[in-house]
Design a protein around this nucleic acid. Sequence first.
DNA 1: TCAAAAGTGTTGCGTCTACACCCATGA
DNA 2: TCATGGGTGTAGACGCAACACTTTTGA
Lengths: 257, 257
Amino acid sequence: MEYKERLKQFIQELKTGYLPSVSMDFVIFGFHEGQLKVLLLQWEGIHDWLLPGGRVRLNENLDDAAYRNLRERTGLGEVFLQQFHTFGNVIRNTYYAIEETLDRLGLSPEDLEGLPGRDVSVGYYALVEYTKVKPSPDLLTQEIRWCSIDEVPRLLFDHNEMITLALKTLRRQLSYQPIGYNLLPDKFTMPQLQQLYETILGQPLDRRNFQKRMLGYGILERLEERKAIGAHKAPYLYRFDMASYQNALAEERMFII
Amino acid sequence: MEYKERLKQFIQELKTGYLPSVSMDFVIFGFHEGQLKVLLLQWEGIHDWLLPGGRVRLNENLDDAAYRNLRERTGLGEVFLQQFHTFGNVIRNTYYAIEETLDRLGLSPEDLEGLPGRDVSVGYYALVEYTKVKPSPDLLTQEIRWCSIDEVPRLLFDHNEMITLALKTLRRQLSYQPIGYNLLPDKFTMPQLQQLYETILGQPLDRRNFQKRMLGYGILERLEERKAIGAHKAPYLYRFDMASYQNALAEERMFII
DNA sequence: TCAAAAGTGTTGCGTCTACACCCATGA
DNA sequence: TCATGGGTGTAGACGCAACACTTTTGA
């Protein structure tokens, strides 16, 4: 069985080229059609979904590994990527027992000999621009796709928990840094930005106050008009003023919503 | 040389009983005489200081390992303990080169064979009540002691960076949770609490406003008087009302200072 | 000309800040 | 009785939240 061979080869590589007992998992957020989405994938031979993950090379910095793995999955280099928690429960698998998972993969415990029985996994969350992402499956992956945040199915291992915590962190983070620009196209309208905030926070916001506050931070640059969207007044386009933006970040200014 | 033998035995244990390539380090905060302190230790044979650390047993949850290690160092069980970052740079050693450190320990690189060349280290910070701590050195440790936060010397590895980030996290955390009670004795006065906050935040606070706010949170219980401290009006004693406190935490109420 | 969405300004309330006086105590 | 520190109340500033009308556009 060719797939099984590939799998074994993959495991062999794990034993030699990567840090044992350390892995990483990614909660990759995207925003599309008014919905917050996460990137999920499916291993071959298993019909359940899980978060994309990765491992650290022997001579690679942890954060570098994160960027590398993310690039391998999404094709994106320049993204917001941040550690949010390290998960280290022995039984991180709350859905299927490990044995059952192995069985479905067509493996026996002997195949894993020499690997530590468990990983400590560093959780990262990423904010990416939905349209720029080209999900690319790897050796083990059968399918990879976006899933709306409130339609996430039961995932393998502790990955549901990871998403929950990542979202919680993101919401909190939103008060410290204007994160929006990672999730939106270069040029966007104020209603789009507001919708993003409302989606992440899960609550409606006052249109006028929102605009006032956002402009008050002095990190947005207004461009010319934009028409298009139907029978309404055309909203302005904005762009993040990166200089002021970096400045604000450096000063650790608060962005309370 | 007996010490070297112990060291080798210790390393042997590492190879078999613990997760390879994962370690943890602790920034243990205490508060005493108006100063914020951290617990530092010194390895035998090396005159430099470093943070207490630990490793994870093969079958042990990460957080359990943290509590175990902390207990082994401080004798304390019930403390505030929280992950703040995972450090994974290949060269986490910014002071001495690893070789030099080995040399001072009387080891050669061969002694480490079989161990991965580097660790990913999960940083935890702890808030403990200064007077309750009984620092207990381990096999490798020569001395262990409290050090005022602004007199921390250059530490081995990336441990200075860890303290900096832990403190930053603590300051930020202070706005989300009233952390004070972990650092103070059961009964404390308002000026004591204020001093704690001022010390952690590194800025003076208005006495009246501070008291108003703290009482406003409804998590403090006022007790009878207290005399003692010199030729002044005796301040009230307070105690955290644990029920309301837990309640407030659960609601994720903000505690802005 | 109407419906739907976007742009903008003002008012009021509540909250935080700044500030001063009285009280208790030991020397 | 005085110096030192602790307890408390109030007035003003500020910021945020609530809110309504006008503009644009396509149907």
